[in-house]
Amino acid sequence: MHEEIAIAGTGGQGVLFAGRLLAEAALLEDREVVWMPSYGAEKRGGSVYCNIIISDERIGAMVVVRPHAAIAMNLAWTERFEPAIKPGGLLIVNKSLVPRQLKRDDIQVIYLPANDLAAELGDDSAANLIALGTLISCRPVVSPSSIYAAMDNMLAKNRKRLEFNKRALNKGLEMAPAKISPTTSSSARPHPRATSL
């Protein structure tokens, strides 16, 4: 197994935390793992990116160029990820903030209203975890129980947040591939919205 995943969006969307959870979960499964953030001058609301590599072998390159799967939490990253995803790969687009359809038909695209779903749960800052749940349900690189365990470790001092985050992750997991058309393409589909969540 060797899976390269990218998660990106705007500062404050929990991009780094979601990536870190994935990396910690992979470590709990005793995989090799790299979590690599982009970094810049500290600035609120700036662009945030991280990539996670999970593998059974020693990992070479630490920076991902063509991810197998990605979560784009905003429009700018949707546009950057669309051409980059490996054929047959997965792109989860945060439909709540990205009002457009993608052109590629050789990848699986999931239009996930992550912020809206999070708001329904009571706090739209959990959009990142909903997206993460959907990601691991579509591409089972780690098991949900490993993510729960990683959360237990990272949020041991904040039980309330921990429980809420688990609900958010579960919400994302419910958005299972079976419930979603595996591939969407705006050009190919007469009713694109009908396939999105």
Binding site: E32, V33, V34, W35, P37, Y39, I59, V63
Partner: peptide, 9 residues
């Protein structure tokens, strides 16, 4: 900078 920032086991 890459080595400094990247997390690994």
């Amino acid at each position: 900078g890459f080595l400094g920032q990247a997390m690994e086991p």
